[in-house]
Simulated assay, not measured.
Amino acid sequence: MTDRSYEGPWNENPHHDSHPGYGPYPQPYPQASAPRQPSPHPGPQQWPGPQQWPGPQAYGDPQDALQHTQQWQGPTWDTQTHPQLSAAAATAETAYLPPVEAPEPAAAPAPPQPPAAAPAPPAPHGDEPAYGPATLGGTPRLTDAQRARAEGRSPIIDPGMQPAALTALLGLLLAGAAGLGTYALLVPLVVLQAVTAAGWFRLNGMWPARQGIALGFAGALVADVAVLSAGRESAPAAVLGTLGVWVLLSLVLQLRSHADPDERMYGLMATVASAALAIVATGYLAADPDAAAIGAAAVAAAVLARALPLPTAASAVVALLAAAGMGIVVDGMTDMGAKGALLGTGAAVCALIGHRVAAYDYPSRFVHFTAGVTLPLTAAAPVVWVLGRVLG
C-alpha cells in the first residue's frame, strides 16, 4: 500500500464518458445540473491532466461519495417512469380504419372500328430485315411480303438491270468456255454452283447457313468430278447418284440439329433444294459443248431483255424472242443447224422461271446479286442437257 490515492481508468482518457451501471459506485437517476459556462478564453480547449480520485475508503458517508461520483448529464430512458399502454387502449387507437371503396366498374367498350389501311411500306434496300412496324397489341410482326399480300399488292420485285448484266456476263463466259473445252468450262461452272448454293439460302431467309452452303457446294463439286470421271454418256447416273447421296447427308445433318422440329424441317428442305440446284447445274458439263454454248448464250439474252422497263407480259415475250435469235446466231457457229432456235427458246423459258423465283417475296439486294444472277442459268441447265441430247 502507498500513500498515493487511487487513480481510476476514467481519468486516463479525458474523453471517456462513463455509462450507468458500469462505474465503481452505483449511480442514481439523472439529476438536473447547471448549464456549462463557455470558456472565457477562445481557442482550443485545454483538458486537465490526471486528477486524484479518492477511493471508496476515503469517504465514510455514502452521500459524500455520491458528490464526487461522475453524474450523467443527459436524458435517459427509464421504463418505470413512462406509462404503459393497455391492450384495450392500443386496440382502440388502431380499430378504426378508413373504409376502402371498390372502384366502379368500367363502362362496356364500344364495338371496335376496323383499322384504317396503313400506307404501303417502301421496298427494303440492302440486307435490312423486311419487317413491318412494331405492334403494341401483342400481335406478331408481319413481313413486308405478308403485308403486301394482305393488302392485295404483289410481293414480287425483279432483280433489275445490274444483276441481269452479271447473269449475261456469266452466261457468255459459260458459252465461250464450252467452245474451248471441258476443263475450261469447269471454271465458270464452279462459280455458278457456289453462288447458287449461297443465294438459295439467302432467298429463303436463312443467313448465315455455312453448313448448308458448304454441303450444297460440296455436292456440286462431287457431281462435277463424277461426270468428268464417268464421261458424258454416264452423266445422268453420276448426277442422280450424287444427288441421292447428298439428300441423305442433308437429312443426317438436320437430325443432329437441336432446333425446333419446324425449324429442322424448314432447314432440311432448304438444304436439299440448295444441294439439288447446285448439283443440277452440272448439266452444262454433261451436255454437248455446242448445246451448252447455245443454252448459256440464250439465257444471257433472255435475262437482259427481261430487265427492260416494259410490262411483265411484254418483257417476257421480248425475252423469248431474244433467246431464239441468240440461238440462231450461235447456231451458225456450231454444227446443230436450225435446232439452235428451239434450244435457245427452251433454255429461256427455264431462265424466266428462275428469274421470277429470285424476285419473289420482297428479296433483298443481296438476293438479287446472288440468286438473281445464278438461278436463271441454273434452272436452264437440265433443259440444255435434255434438248441437246434430243436435238443433237
Rank of each mutant, 00 (worst) to 15 (best):
S274H: 01
P62W: 09
L277H: 05
D290S: 13
L321S: 06
P24N: 11
Q254L: 12
L186A: 15
R365Q: 08
A223Q: 08
L186C: 12
S86C: 02
G176E: 05
I279Q: 12
S274T: 08
L192N: 07
S364G: 15
A302E: 03
Y29W: 15
A116R: 10
Q67C: 06
S5K: 05
P363C: 06
H125I: 07
A110M: 10
V349L: 15
A209K: 04
A316S: 13
G392F: 09
A313E: 11
A148Q: 08
H125A: 12
T79F: 11
Q71P: 07
A88M: 02
D331R: 02
A293C: 03
A34Q: 14
A148W: 04
A110P: 13
R147S: 01
W10F: 13
A323G: 15
T196E: 08
A316V: 12
G23I: 00
F217S: 10
L136E: 09
V330N: 01
L268E: 04
W47A: 12
S364I: 00
D158Y: 06
G179K: 12
T94P: 00
A226I: 11
I213F: 02
R306G: 00
T334P: 01
L85T: 05
L85E: 01
N11F: 09
G354W: 04
A286G: 06
P75M: 06
S274L: 00
A164L: 00
P289I: 03
A184Y: 09
S234F: 07
L66H: 02
G138R: 08
E151F: 01
S257W: 04
L172F: 12
C350L: 15
L377M: 04
G23Y: 13
A120F: 09
D331E: 15
L228A: 11
V383L: 10
D260V: 04
A194Q: 08
G267M: 02
M206N: 09
L304Y: 01
A92P: 01
V367D: 03
H68N: 11
V317Q: 02
P28A: 14
P236G: 04
A305E: 08
A276T: 15
Q51G: 13
R147T: 06
A65W: 05
R141W: 05
Y59W: 14
A278H: 03
G179T: 13
L136G: 14
T312H: 11
M336Q: 09
W200I: 13
P140F: 07
E263N: 14
L248T: 10
A130M: 00
P24Q: 08
D78V: 12
L251I: 13
A281V: 03
A198N: 02
M333R: 10
Q254Y: 03
Q63F: 05
G337C: 07
P35I: 09
L342W: 14
L321M: 09
